[in-house]
Nucleic acid binder design. Structure first.
Lengths: 170, 170
DNA sequence: CCGCTACTGTGCAGATCGATCAGTTGTGAC
DNA sequence: GTCACAACTGATCGATCTGCACAGTAGCGG
């Protein structure tokens, strides 16, 4: 297996962390916070975006606060060769937050959100009516134990030390 | 059920959409894009953050690009009353991206990521070793059918028309 | 030893930010 | 009908940040 992932060194990780904690901070503030030059922050950030590690900075919407307090995880068993059709169907349904093809005989796991249990059932029924779906099982999310996060994983390995420090001040 | 969610009108939705498509845009550029005054954008954005609808602007990290190309969904059946302990354990494991308590007799659904199948198995084994876990089932994600998104859901209802337009220029 | 790359610190012109003000308009209360 | 209120507009101000360029320093490999 080739290492397709761009290796993130300590500075990259620190940059991501700082950016997570202060999302609206500009390059100058980040550079101050990290103790490096502004140009370095800009270059690193540019590289992270170029390599596809950082795909965006979209606003994180709290669906509960927005009025969509009901979420569910649905496992779909789909008909042979219907993956393409189903993908299009899922993408067209606003209530479907995300969907993944998984191991198992044609299984798809998707996450669904709705404003109420009634609305959720509507979406679930619509899913079940699909010609591509053979069987479906759903569980309702009751509480969020661990909110979505990626930094702990990235940090866990303690990346390689930063590059040549170069001109060390003075 | 009370409508705890802050109602988002057309302008709020347009703002979120513009912000999603141009995440690094400042208030001025957003105002130009939406055709409203800069102060309005700032006020709306402030309100969205105050009401908790927008919780942050953290950088979206593509785990595959970062070298963590293996993801799995794990269903844990847990022992009675062990939810608290398990939550702490899950939070302490970097490989656990998120976790939700779900319907079913003490079930928890969590998403796990790893650098390779071997690493994934390590995490899975660690989960199984937990005293709080009675049984565990895991499916590996093969491909992402629908990437995570929230805007379609928010937009689907076509929020109420914007507020009093006020001074209409001229 | 030399070339390459990465980082540092600085400077400048232009753009943006945050705060504030008066003016206009729709809404709901009285 | 009239009034106060809330929301949006358009504008200004100083302070700050951005994008870009430059020369200098330090580690790495040939």
């Amino acid at each position: 297996m080739s290492t397709d992932g761009a290796r993130l060194d300590t500075l990259d990780l620190a940059l991501l962390r700082a950016l997570t904690e202060h999302p609206r901070a500009g390059a100058l503030e980040l550079s101050r916070r990290l103790g490096v030059a502004r140009g370095t922050v800009q270059a690193r950030l540019q590289r992270l975006e170029d390599t596809g590690v950082v795909t965006g900075y979209g606003p994180d919407v709290d669906l509960t606060a927005a009025g969509f307090g009901v979420q569910a995880f649905v496992t779909l068993e789909i008909a042979q060769g219907a993956l393409g059709d189903l993908t299009a169907e899922l993408a067209a349904m606003p209530g479907v937050l995300e969907a993944h093809a998984t191991t198992g005989s044609g299984d798809v796991l998707c996450r669904v959100a709705a404003r109420s249990h009634g609305d959720l059932q509507q979406t679930l029924l619509q899913l079940g009516r699909s010609a591509s779906v053979v069987r479906s099982t759903s569980v309702v999310a009751l509480s969020e134990l661990v909110p979505l996060r990626t930094l702990p994983l990235l940090t866990s390995e303690g990346g390689p030390p930063a590059r040549a420090p170069g001109h060390r001040g003075g």
